[in-house]
Structure formats: structure tokens, C-alpha cells
Design a protein around this nucleic acid. Structure first.
Length: 640
RNA sequence: GCCAAUGUAGCUCAGCCUGGUAGAGCAAUUGAUUUGUAAUCAAUAGGUCAUGGGUUCAGAUCCCGUCAUUGGCUCCA
């Protein structure tokens, strides 16, 4: 799986055997018992409406398995938080709907009584047990007014629901890692001793990762650009972090997707497609969750608790399970471009295209027979990733490399690790773990550093030594013995949205530094814009556009009734590389006068030379036609 | 998720402090103009001032809640 530093455990709500409480600090509450819900309901005399003011209301669901210690635990935690908010009146409100695994009514009533007794120093009461009640409640507005909790037998007891973490994760903060810089000659230097003067971006990355130093006070420029260029935007009717892509954005994204997929297939990955949702209670998922947490979207459907995938791993592992693998067929590589993978990232983390809740991720797993084969393979994939980024328009100076491994793995594979660093050609940031904590023994990634000093990972690969076994994937080795493969998890480009983010941030930087921002030509929504000077050239222009477009070039025509100056200005604002102004002179000539945005000059060139010049720049890249009307007069403006 | 800032026409923003007729530029529409390499001219239309409450004779403006975006924290592909 890619992205192991997601630190939230999945905790199926229905399987918790703990008291669940919802605590509200209220101005007032009014409730009226209406009718008995169960036979064993509490006997009460007073059926009048009760009204209480300035109090804490605690809705309680007592679950199967709760006992006296849980009740004591709960009440002492409630008392502690009431002291914090300075409130002395408490109403315990039995509320079965917080749980679907309720305790027997008799047990519940006893525990409720026990809680009430445990708070005798407060003004405490409870609403009748087992009755249907109507109620009206006014909750206060301060931040501590509302909290929901799960109380366990454990003495540490009470935690906010979303703070529950697995043992594995609790341990994560105790991981001992050493941050170093590994140079191309194999020397390891402490970060404090390293001379960063020639490696500014690496310094940013090192500080970002190890010391958490960041300084930014403005929105990332790509957010305005993605709207202005008609690429992508927020979709208010969806959840945060789920973007809409306009025609220009879809065209760019689709071309990048196709390019990455082509490259992975060329490398030997076989493209598959797997479901986007899985049953969290399916046996193959249960143990996985306890080890590989990510916050995810959950869906309840016909009694199943489904979740949206946060990576392509499960699908490919389950599929690999169906193969009869032999050492002779390894390494075997499965690949999927997930549209989408979902991670319910914390809302405060989401910015433009940099970090999303729904994203498109190329994910290629290689199943290898042993460590030497895995190491061999990871080198090939390293080259692939470097080359893919370069061809996408992100060159080596735009990113820096981080590599993480266990101390044991380093000692046994020093030369291979150094070889990766040499391929990168510059010093890299190292995180070395004293012991294996995650499912992998090595992970490297390329981090794009944007103009504001923000680092985000693009390409990555990992050597996974656990999931083969966990998923029961096996192959037969040379000695006819079943073994579990070592699995590599590679994304050669990282998330596609993040590539677009990187390209836009690069463009913004160019613009800031006085250069003209530009997409790589093969990704430009319009590659050539034709501007006829007068209507009388319309027919000539139509034919010219056709001649250009059959050579796999995206060409459009600005036939609007606007001045030449204005139309050129707008083409420039769309970052269109080539502009052809067509008038008398051109209509009577074999040559074209092209305005080249890269130089800003107008030059005369023959038709064939022009096509050749374009095709040379787009060679080896996928092509698709215009994704907007050919005539600008037919094109509504997108004002975002 | 926590802390903070922001939310006014399709877009960018002014007005808010000090409550009393909703404002500009760009875009759109219509008309004129037929243009030679980064903005032709004129007219018209366009707004429950994010949203829900509160205070007030009166709320875009003051107060509170909610939602969204952005920054920081935490986190990371």
C-alpha cells in the first residue's frame, strides 16, 4: 500500500463492547415520558413534563459486556469534564439508539443507578428508563459543550471516539528514527552537520520532515490558476477534497493518466480494474485494518459495512491470490490507475489539488520471489519513476528524495541503497528505523518542493515483507516449497492531481520570476490558435485548421468580433504556445507567420516545418482532440 | 479535528469600524465598428450581501451558531 503514514485505525463501531455516551452542556432540557417501550421499564408516578436548567445532559447506551468498572469509569470521567466547564447539575438520559449491541435492561438499569450514586456530590437525576420520551433541548455554543465518548474497562477509560488508535499506532510515536543525509559517495551525515548551501530544497525537505518547520502565509498559487485556466474547482455539493474537472482539466488529466499507464505497461505491469468499495467485515479485510489504518469513507448498505478503498492494494492482493504462481513467473506485476482512491483526510489538510479526499493514483505491485529479485526490480522502477516525472514536465531540480529503511536492511544492503542515491545524483534525506515498524523494510519517495517551501510526495516505492503472508499469496519455489512473495508498491508518478498541482506551481514560479508560464506542449488544451483578421478569411482559416488538425494538433479559431490585440492578449492569457494571425498576406502565401509564445517573436515558417516542430515536441506522448468548441464564438466563458 | 482569518453581481473587489437608497472594473447581452500581433466604443441586464438565529424602529454593517474556503497545528501520495 502507498501512504503508510496515515495514522488512523479503522474501528468497526458495531463490535465495540463499551458504554457509549454523548455529553451535552445545556441551557435547558424539557422531556415528557409518553409510553413504556419495554415490559421491564421503570415504574414512575410523575408523567408530567420535567424541565431542568443549566446542566449537563449525558445520553447513555450501556452495551453488552459493560460492568461496574465501566460505570465507575464513565461517571468519574463525566465528573472531571463537568468540573472543567463548571457545571454542577447532571441528568443521565438512557438512550438506546447510540448502540446496536445493548446490554439487558436489568443490567443497564443497575449500572445507571450505580453511575447516579457515584455522582452524589452533584445534583444528579435520571430520566425514566425504558420509556419513550419526547424532549426539547438547548445546547450551549462553547467548544467543550458537546462530546461523544466510548468508555472501556481499561483504566485509561474514556477517549473521544476519533482518538481511538490501535496498539500499533500508539507505538508509532515511540518509533526511534534517525534522520541523516546520505550522499552519493555513501557517506552518512547528521542533518545538523550537513552543508546545505548547494542543496536548498533538500534542506527544506529535511526540516519539513524531521523538525516540522514550515513557513507559509499565503494560499498556494495553483489554487487560483486551476480555476483561471478552467482546469479544476471545488464542488460545493460534494464533500471537501472532491474536485470537479472542467474540459481543460479533464483533457490534461486524461493525457497524464494515459501516459503513466502506457509507461507502466511498457515496463511490464498488467493493467487491471478492481472495485472501489470493500466489505470491512470480510475476513481478508479484518487483519488488514488493524495494521494499515487510514480514515475512510464508510457506507452502510443492506447490513454490510462497506468502505471506499484508500489504495489499490487490496484489490490487487485479492486478485493475486487467484493466480497459481511459480518462481518462474515472478516477478509478476499488476497495475491499476485508481479513479478514485479515497482518504477522509482531516478537513484542515485539504488545499486545492495538493491534498484531496478523492484522488487518482497509479499503483503498481510487483510480486517477487526473494529479496535479491525485489532489489533488482526496485532499481528498474526507480529509473521508470525518474523518467516518467521528467517526461511529465517535472525535472530533477524540482524534487528531492527521501529514503527510509530499517537499520538491519541498511546493513545488509548498503551498496544497493547507495546505488539508488547515485541514480538520484544528489544527497538524499534518510530516515533510519531501529526496528521494523511498518510492513515494509524500505521506502523511497520523491518530494516536490513548491515555491512556498511545501513538500509533497510524488513517486514512491516500497519493499513489503508482510502482506504476501497476510493475504495468503504464495508461489512455489525451486525446491517445490510454498513461499510468500515480497511485494513492491510503486506509484511512478504519485497522484495525477498532484502532478497537475506541481505543474501549476512550477508555472506560478516561472511567472513570479518573470518567465512566461507554460504547460508542456503535449498537455496544452489548445496548441495552436488561429486568428482571422476579417470575416472574408473564414474559409481559408477553416481549411488551414483542418490541415493542421489532421496532424494530431489541437487547433482552434478565434472568430469573435474583437480586435486583433484583444484576441492575441486572450490567447496569451490561455498560455497558448502558437498563434497564427491570418490576413491578406497569409492567404496569398505558402508560408505561415507564427507568433511563438516562448520567444514572443513572430517568424515566417513553412507549413511542413511548423507541423514538424510541433510533432517533435509531442513525440511519444498520447494525443486527444480539442475538448472545447473549435470556434471561440461558440465557447461560453467559464468564469471561476 | 483544533486555533485564526475570510465569505457582497458569473469573476476580482469596495462599502462594514461609526446601522438608514447595494457600488466599481472585468465578463454577459444588444448595437455600432472589420480591425495586422497583449484590452475598440456605446447601451442594457445582472445581487434574499454564505446560511440560521439574536439585538434594533431599522442589519451587508453589531452579537451568536452553522457551512465553505484559506493560513497555522497535527498529518501525508
Amino acid at each position: 500500500m502507498i501512504g503508510t503514514f496515515e495514522n488512523r485505525i479503522f474501528m468497526p463501531v458495531l463490535t465495540c463492547l463499551n458504554m457509549r455516551i454523548l455529553q451535552l452542556h445545556c441551557d435547558n432540557i424539557e422531556y415528557t415520558p409518553t409510553k413504556k417501550e419495554i415490559k421491564s421499564a421503570e415504574d414512575i408516578v410523575d408523567l408530567q413534563t420535567q424541565r431542568l436548567e443549566e446542566l449537563v445532559v449525558v445520553f447513555v447506551a450501556i452495551e453488552n459486556g459493560d460492568d461496574s468498572s465501566v460505570a465507575q469509569n464513565a461517571i468519574s470521567q463525566i465528573k472531571a469534564s463537568m468540573e472543567k466547564i463548571g457545571c454542577k447539575k447532571l441528568l443521565l438520559y438512557p438512550y438506546a439508539h447510540l448502540s446496536s449491541n445493548l446490554a439487558k435492561p436489568s443490567t443497564a438499569m443497575n449500572l445507571l443507578k450505580e453511575m447516579e450514586d457515584g455522582a452524589s456530590e452533584l445534583e444528579v437525576s435520571h430520566s425514566p428508563f425504558g420509556w419513550t420520551k419526547s424532549y426539547k433541548i438547548q445546547v450551549k455554543g462553547h467548544p467543550l459543550a458537546e462530546s461523544s465518548k466510548v468508555v472501556t474497562k481499561d483504566s485509561s477509560g474514556l477517549k473521544d471516539d476519533n482518538e481511538i488508535t490501535s496498539d500499533a499506532l500508539k507505538g508509532e510515536s515511540k518509533i526511534r528514527s534517525y534522520w541523516k543525509i546520505l550522499s552519493t559517495d555513501g557517506t552518512m551525515t547528521n542533518i545538523g552537520d550537513f552543508d546545505f548551501s548547494k542543496h536548498k530544497k533538500l534542506e527544506v525537505l529535511a526540516k519539513y520532515e524531521s523538525a516540522k518547520i514550515r513557513k507559509v502565509d499565503q494560499p498556494p498559487p495553483h489554487v487560483a490558476l486551476m480555476k483561471k485556466m478552467g482546469i479544476a474547482d471545488y464542488e460545493p455539493a460534494s464533500d471537501s477534497g472532491n474536485m470537479r474537472f472542467y474540459p481543460n482539466g479533464r483533457l490534461i488529466k486524461s493525457l497524464i493518466e494515459r501516459y503513466v499507464t502506457d509507461r507502466v505497461k511498457e515496463y511490464g505491469g498488467y493493467e487491471v480494474e478492481t472495485p472501489i468499495m470493500y466489505d470491512s467485515e470480510h475476513p481478508s479485510m479484518v487483519s488488514y485494518f488493524n495494521r494499515f489504518p487510514a480514515r475512510q469513507y464508510n457506507i452502510d448498505s443492506e447490513g454490510k459495512k462497506l468502505f471506499l478503498r484508500f489504495a489499490a492494494c487490496f484489490g490487487q492482493f485479492l486478485m493475486a491470490n487467484e493466480y497459481q504462481l511459480s518462481y518462474k513467473t515472478l516477478p509478476y506485476k499488476l497495475y491499476e490507475l485508481t479513479r478514485y482512491s479515497f482518504r477522509r483526510e482531516q478537513s484542515g489538510e485539504l488545499v486545492g489539488l495538493r491534498r484531496l479526499r478523492a484522488f487518482t493514483m497509479p499503483d503498481c505491485h510487483a510480486f517477487c520471489k526473494d529479496m535479491p529479485q525485489a532489489i533488482d526490480e526496485i532499481k528498474t522502477r526507480f529509473d521508470l519513476s525518474q523518467s516518467v516525472l521528467k517526461e511529465l514536465g517535472i525535472d530533477e531540480t524540482d524534487y528531492d528524495m527521501a529514503i527510509r529503511f530499517t537499520e538491519d536492511f541498511y546493513n545488509e544492503n548498503k551498496s544497493s541503497i547507495e546505488e539508488l542515491v547515485k541514480k538520484h545524483g544528489r544527497p538524499v534525506l534518510v530516515e533510519m528505523w531501529k526496528e521494523k515498524f511498518f510492513y515494509f523494510v524500505l521506502k523511497w519517495e520523491f518530494n516536490f518542493i513548491d515555491g512556498l517551501g511545501k513538500a509533497s510526495a510524488l513517486s514512491t516505492d516500497q519493499i513489503d515483507v508482510e502482506n504476501g503472508k497476510r493475504y495468503g499469496i504464495d508461489f512455489v519455489d525451486e525446491n517445490n516449497v510454498k513461499q510468500n512473495p515480497i511485494i513492491l508498491h510503486n506509484s511512478p508518478s504519485g497522484a495525477i492531481e498532484r502532478i497537475i498541482y506541481a505543474l501549476l506551481e512550477k508555472a506560478a514560479k516561472d511567472s513570479r520570476e518573470g518567465r512566461k508560464p507554460q504547460f508542456p506542449l503535449w498537455l496544452s488544451p489548445t496548441q495552436v490558435r488561429i486568428i482571422p483578421i476579417k470575416e472574408e478569411f473564414d474559409e481559408f482559416v477553416e481549411i488551414l485548421a483542418e490541415r493542421i488538425s489532421i496532424n494530431n494538433v489541437r487547433v482552434d479559431i478565434d472568430d469573435r468580433n474583437e480586435s486583433i490585440g484583444k484576441r492575441i492578449r486572450e490567447a496569451e492569457k490561455e498560455w497558448i504556445r502558437y498563434i497564427l494571425v491570418i490576413g491578406e498576406k497569409e492567404a496569398n502565401s505558402q508560408n505561415l507567420n507564427i507568433r511563438d509564445r516562448q520567444t514572443g517573436d513572430v517568424r515566417e515558417i513553412s507549413f511542413d516545418d511548423f507541423i514538424t516542430e510541433i510533432n517533435e515536441q509531442t513525440r511519444g506522448k498520447p494525443f486527444t482532440g480539442l475538448n472545447l468548441p473549435k470556434y471561440l464564438s461558440k465557447r461560453p466563458n467559464l468564469m471561476v
